[in-house]
Design a protein around this nucleic acid. Structure first.
Lengths: 125, 125
DNA sequence: CTAGGACCTGACACTGACGTCAGAGGCAAG
DNA sequence: CTTGCCTCTGACGTCAGTGTCAGGTCCTAG
C-alpha cells in the first residue's frame, strides 16, 4: 500500500510516517519513481510505534529498543533488553506520579463539592 | 524568604518560579529594591503547581483551575470546576493509555526472557 | 490526453516549560 | 569599602514531534 492508505489505516499523519522512516523506525520499499510502498504488516508496526511514543519513549530510545521487538533472541543485544526494562520502570514511576496527581484532583473536587453542597448551589450537582 | 530559598525548598529552579509568576500562578511581594519575597505558604503552593504540571496541565489550564484551590466556595465559577473535572478525566484516560503501553512492554520483556531462556544465554538472568 | 488527487523533497513554523547568558544592581560579612 | 553571592530584567536557545507550505512529479479515471 502507499503512504496515504497506511496513514489512514494506522491513524497517523503522512508527515509522521515519513518522520518515522527518517528516524529509522519504519522501512519502506520505493517504486522506480520514488514512491513508498508498504506491506500489510506496516499497519501493526506503526500502531506499535504509536504506543511506544504514547509511553513517552523518544525516537532514539524506540530505535534502541526495537531490536528486542524484531528479533527476540539471544543475539538481541543485552543493552537493548536492559533499556527496555529501564523504560518499563520509568513508565511505571510516571504512572505512579500521575496517580498521585489524580488523587489530588479528586480531593480538590470533593472539597469543592462539599463547600457548594453546604451552600446549596454552585458547581456541584 | 527570597527566591533562591524558595527554589531550594520546593525543589525547582529559580527560573521556573519567575515563569510561574509571569503566568499568574504565583504571587510575590517586592522589596523596595525589587526583590521578590515569599511567605512560608509559597513552598506548598509551588509543590502544588509542580504536581499539576506533572499531570500534564498547561500553565493556562492551571490558571483556570486555581480558583477552585484558592477559594473552594460557591463563588468559584462553575466553568473552573467543570474544567477541573475535565482535566481529571483526561488524566484518567492518559493513565489508562500508559497502563496499556506498560502491559505491552511487559509482554515484550517476557517474550525476550523466554527466547533467551530457551537458548540458555543472553539478557535474561 | 487531461484533470486532479496522491506523492516527492526540503525547509521553516510551532508549542511550552524551561535553560542560559548578559549586563546591572542588592546585600551581608570582613 | 570591597568581596562574593544573590537577585533583577530581557532575550534568545532548546527539544521533538508534527503542521504546513512550496515547487515539482506521478498515477489513474474519464
Amino acid at each position: 500500500m502507499r503512504i496515504g492508505e497506511l496513514a489512514r489505516r494506522a491513524g497517523v499523519s503522512v508527515r509522521s510516517l515519513r518522520y518515522y522512516e527518517e528516524q529509522g523506525l519504519l522501512e519502506s520499499e520505493r517504486s522506480s519513481s520514488g514512491q513508498r510502498h508498504y506491506p500489510e504488516a506496516a499497519v501493526d508496526r506503526v500502531i506499535l510505534l504509536q504506543r511506544l511514543y504514547a509511553g513517552g519513549l523518544s525516537s532514539r530510545t524506540i530505535g534502541d529498543v526495537l531490536p528486542c521487538v524484531d528479533r527476540p533472541s539471544a543475539d538481541t543485544s543485552e543493552a537493548a533488553f536492559e533499556m527496555m526494562v529501564g523504560e518499563r520502570e520509568r513508565l511505571s514511576a510516571h504512572i505512579d506520579d500521575l496517580l498521585q496527581t489524580r488523587d489530588m484532583l479528586d480531593e480538590l473536587i470533593a472539597t469543592n463539592r462539599r463547600h457548594n453542597a453546604t451552600l446549596g448551589s454552585g458547581p456541584a450537582r
